[in-house]
């Protein structure tokens, strides 16, 4: 593994992720996330649905699959318009910093504001990483950002939140390991209507801290 993966998955990489809660802000408002146990359950659910989809797309993008097609596949797997916008917003942010961090002609093949997992796959390739690394970054990021958001919103003990995230490691690895195209050529397509609904309700709110 190249240490570029550590940079790519670092929450301090200035790609705009800190302003996205991955549905946690609305889950907190709805009372669904309120303590370490409910947070862990939420994160696992997110990891195995949108995290798995992101891992599949990132891995395929890193591998050199057609990026416009993958971007369309990401759209098809993201029914919520709010989530599509959030993903493209974060993709754009990642492209901005990624181009500087890992200069490569690969970036030029991306659409203007690509879905985040697609941009992540390109960043991984530009940084000399493998598709498996790209999937690991996507899977990890699908829970690390939301965990931090919960910590801030609920003023949870940061040590507890770190432990919750750390204990998801086997699940994160499993998701990353299953991210490659299946025999029939398809990518993971799991969805979670709850995340879609939370995102839609959230985006209509004016009193929110997070962009999504």
């Amino acid at each position: 593994m190249s240490s570029a993966l550590l940079t790519l998955a670092d929450s301090r990489l200035p790609a705009g992720g800190h302003a996205h809660s991955g549905g946690v802000e609305q889950a907190v408002a709805a009372g669904l996330v309120h303590d370490p146990g409910s947070l862990a359950a939420f994160l696992l659910r997110r990891l195995t649905t949108s995290g798995a989809v992101a891992a599949g797309l990132a891995s395929a993008a890193c591998q050199g699959d057609d990026l416009a097609r993958l971007d369309a596949e990401a759209d098809a797997r993201t029914p919520s318009p709010a989530l599509r916008a959030a993903s493209r917003q974060q993709g754009r942010g990642l492209v901005r910093v990624g181009r500087r961090a890992w200069p490569s002609p690969l970036w030029d093949a991306l659409p203007a504001a690509p879905h985040h997992p697609v941009a992540l796959g390109v960043a991984a390739a530009a940084g000399g990483l493998t598709p498996r690394d790209a999937a690991a970054a996507a899977a990890y990021l699908s829970v690390s950002g939301p965990a931090t958001a919960a910590q801030r919103l609920l003023a949870m003990d940061p040590l507890t939140v770190a432990a919750v995230t750390a204990r998801l490691a086997p699940d994160i690895d499993a998701v990353a390991g299953n991210s490659t195209r299946s025999a029939d050529g398809s990518l993971p397509a799991d969805t979670d209507p709850l995340l879609d609904l939370l995102a839609e309700v959230h985006s209509a709110r004016k009193d929110r801290f997070f962009a999504s």
Partner: peptide
Amino acid sequence: AVQTGCCPHTAIRDDITANLD
């Protein structure tokens, strides 16, 4: 208007992405 994820300071100094957008 941009959202700052509970961290107004981060949004103008450490990760300026949303403001650049």
